[in-house]
Design a protein around this nucleic acid. Structure first.
Lengths: 256, 256
DNA sequence: CGTTCATTTGAGCCGACTCAAAATGGGTGG
DNA sequence: CCACCCATTTTGAGTCGGCTCAAATGAACG
């Protein structure tokens, strides 16, 4: 009972323009709640209007649903509108490796530019809606919209930079530091989206986190346990409350 | 004496169009030895000709010389023409992290698109010459050369893909596997450039390799020692001869 | 209410790190 | 040409963090 209330407190508020779930709403980017974060955010109003015309709004995806299949021909970019997804790849021996998590306003499928095929699987971690930007419609726009061109390069550069930084930061701290960094990063990204940076629900399992950080799920669990005992956070299953975010941030070497 | 001969065998043949070292030779990309590998390789002949006009040939850089300084404004892309370089960044506490090594025909500075500033240091590991592609001259070309535009996206996508793959592969094998993967990868890239895939000189120190693979230099040294005792390769200082490349490749999980 | 999956906790082991010292190689100047 | 010096690399011994295997607990769903 009291627990139910606790649960309620953690429930995420509606994140974006998904007020009409399941429908192919013709919502424009301008009226989208994510318009300060999303791809068109840096475009001029004219460019944004033109860009708007090529974006398809996808239907809601169920938890576990596949947004992108690795190995298939690259034909579009995808932007998560609400919910979340994980980017991962599966090696020949069946091992799964999680490259990262896609939050609302973030783009998936960029690595497909390398060879016209997607390299990563992207799958919803909870009910998730998305926008689709077909390349056949994006390409022609690049001719006349220098801002969009720059934005594409920026997006790719950012993904590259993030990947390098992740490798660098994870590589030089221990298990607890990695988990701390992960939480601090997630907290920051949630805050950017207008959500609470201190109270949130993890949409990914301990195993997903572990495979993302290069650890085992037991180690992730133990790290969370340590933080809990230190009074830095509260954990109840997937619900997290950060009590001393600054402690986590400093431990994760986030200032590096 | 015999040793001198051994050394000689390993000497790298001249790699590219650097027959006039130190001079700002106005060599065109078309006559460059790297033209099947380098940025303009995928352009149409017309596009390649136009692109040629914006490439500046840099002077020879001494070993240790800096090609790109992290934090400075991004104003150009750099392509190594001969020699090699390391991409790395230094954290606040002074720890160095090596992101990768740049071989002839490979591009450095791409991650700068993220925020208009370079995020990595790039420094020559041996006498190195390079080409410089100023953004102010590259940008306008993107208007009218769709092939060049695609090539830029491809280049960034490839860098991203490689970074993801590296993290994934290194994350799931032990120290020996990482070193094996590193050697197999290097071997493949050297072969692409018309060099021997089985005999080469490492331009980077054990420490550089270690900081690249997330290990210590002692561990890298021990891994090489193990391979040597197994008869998979010969090591003499920085000179490597692979005797059983397939063993290394399979151990490095290179087929993943 | 029971089943099933996810998470936590425990015990023991192994690989990579740390610290330390020896050896090798490259470069320099006599 | 040789002897020396310096940086790099190799090798050794001991420690510890995270992994593996295993069991118990907790949460979610019908």
């Amino acid at each position: 009972m009291a627990f139910q209330m606790k649960d309620r407190r953690h429930t995420d508020p509606p994140l974006a323009a998904d007020c009409c779930p399941g429908a192919l709403a013709r919502v424009s980017c301008r009226s989208c709640a994510l318009n300060t974060l999303c791809l068109p955010a840096r475009l001029s109003p004219q460019e944004a209007r033109i860009f708007d015309g090529v974006v398809e709004r996808g239907r809601q995806l169920a938890s576990g649903g596949s947004l992108i299949r690795a190995g298939t021909r690259m034909d579009a970019l995808y932007v998560v509108r609400s919910g979340s997804a994980k980017r991962y790849s599966v090696s020949l021996n069946g091992t799964e490796r999680v490259h990262g998590f896609v939050l609302p306003g973030e783009t998936a499928g960029l690595e497909g530019f390398a060879c016209d095929r997607y390299a990563c699987e992207v799958a919803a971690l909870e009910p998730t809606s998305y926008c689709r930007i077909p390349l056949t419609r994006l390409e022609p726009l690049l001719d006349h919209l220098p801002g969009l061109r720059r934005e594409m390069l920026r997006l790719l550069g950012e993904a590259l930079d993030e990947s390098l930084r992740l490798r660098a930061e994870l590589g030089m701290c221990d298990a607890r530091g990695r988990v701390a960094r992960f939480l601090a990063d997630l907290s920051r990204r949630l805050e950017l989206r207008g959500l609470s940076p201190t109270q949130f629900r993890l949409s990914m399992s301990r195993g997903d986190i572990a495979r993302h950080l290069g650890l085992t799920l037991e180690t992730v669990s133990r790290a969370l346990g340590t933080f809990k005992r230190s009074g830095w956070l509260e954990v109840r299953a997937r619900y997290i409350t950060l009590l001393r975010p600054e402690a986590l941030a400093s431990m994760g070497g986030y200032a590096a």
